[in-house]
Amino acid sequence: MLSDKSKEEIKRVLNKYPNKRSAAMDALRIAQNETGCLSGDVMQEVAGILGMPAPQVNEVAAFYTMYNKKPVGKYHIQVCTNVSCSLLGAEHIVEFLSRKLGIKKGETTPDKKVTLSVVECLGSCGTAPMMQINDDYYEDLTDEKIEEILSKLP
């Protein structure tokens, strides 16, 4: 069950949209901020609030990589592997992170600290290759930079 605070916030953002359906992405974002990932129950609840069929909320959530369908660790590393990043070595970065963390893409470390994901374009092609950890961007990545970033994760 979503908290009253999240429900209030969803009701507030509804005002921004011409109809309830249009608020699906915003509502899912708010829900995910609270719950960490979008389980079936959470999507059902969002669907109920928006008056949408649940499969359609599921469609939206499944389309975007920003919505977590599985629980993620404390730090969620999302590496962009779209065109610009790939040309500048994104595959190597994924492989490097994977080796460093001891997990494959899509997995979470056993201590639930870090999750490694591969995502589509994050709109930072000018500073490729890049990754996002939780809400922050880390750009112009190199192996050394990544090691430093990882070592600084509290």
Binding site: Q44, P53, A54, P55, Q56, N58, E59, F63
Partner: peptide, 27 residues
């Protein structure tokens, strides 16, 4: 399912070539 039957039980879940036309949570 959506337009004729009105049950709205199915959706295209996923993206690109990995879309599955199925019910909620593929359940």
């Amino acid at each position: 399912c959506d337009e004729v039957v009105g049950a709205k039980a199915l959706g295209g879940i996923g993206r690109g070539v990995m879309i599955q036309s199925t019910g909620f949570m593929d359940d």
